[in-house]
Design a protein around this nucleic acid. Structure first.
Lengths: 137, 137
DNA sequence: ATAAAAATGGACTAAAATAGTCCGATTTAT
DNA sequence: ATAAATCGGACTATTTTAGTCCATTTTTAT
């Protein structure tokens, strides 16, 4: 699986926060609305916070909100925050792990595929996704 | 990881067999040349055999050779034989596993990405890879 | 002041997927 | 007969993924 559950959950959450604009939303609300185990979501939001995507408020009536403009957040960025660089094949992540990589005609293929996937994902931002969401209902 | 080890090994093996043309090659030779654990490779070749990509000869001097023309085998085919359909995200493999898929603006994205990746991989055949291999040395 | 409701941090665990191993049986060339 | 190969099935080890749990801290409403 290219996209891990935690990444999927992160993306859903950011989409939810995008729709809520500047409103502060707590973990349980997101968990409920997006069908995410709330304890797990806790960890995910912590990570997004550390990376400057969202901001948090502690204490009663606390919660989270989006720090950046939805248009300024792309999907690739979130994937990389949650699970590191897109991994197609071992050698495309770390060339040293493959004894063949220097004489292998597959290596360039994996690298090119990765580049293409990254380009495609970088083009998708959360403002777009939000619009599509409303279209879809 | 999109590409599992077994798939990578399968691809390497087919590339090797492509170069050997009609010569019969045994597991240990492939394992040695392509840095694959030979017991594991055994399983992989069995699968490729069942799917009609290679043919085997039992007994002394036995081994394997490519049944199809390298030009007629594409990478996507081998990936799907070894690990099933390209899996980007849970919902792009099995829609029923995601409660949101019907109202989710991400779902179409994953489907489209999958289609693009598949198209790209389908275009690459083993004759091409072989040529590139010789260029590279 | 106090209680309740929230995030925070760290350690831990369960389940699933991945990457193999091992061995006995069968087949075939010499 | 023997050696060298595939074949098939059961088994195992390791790693990754997907969480859980709990004690602590912070803040707010009352």
């Amino acid at each position: 699986m290219l996209i891990k559950r935690k990444t999927d959950y992160a993306i859903r959450s950011i989409l939810y926060l995008s729709q809520k604009k500047n409103k502060i939303v707590d973990v349980n609300e997101i968990a409920r609305e997006k069908f995410i185990p709330s304890n797990f979501l806790t960890k995910i939001l912590q990570r997004l916070k550390k990376k400057g995507i969202i901001k948090s408020f502690k204490g009663k009536n606390g919660g989270f909100y989006l720090l950046k403009n939805p248009r300024e957040i792309n999907i690739l960025e979130i994937i990389e925050i949650m699970q590191g660089p897109i991994s197609l094949n071992l050698c495309a992540v770390d060339k040293r792990k493959c004894k063949l990589s220097n004489v292998c005609s597959l290596h360039p293929l994996w690298l090119e595929m990765r580049k293409n996937i990254e380009r495609e994902l970088k083009r998708v931002n959360f403002y777009e996704l939000m619009k599509d969401y409303y279209k879809r209902r």
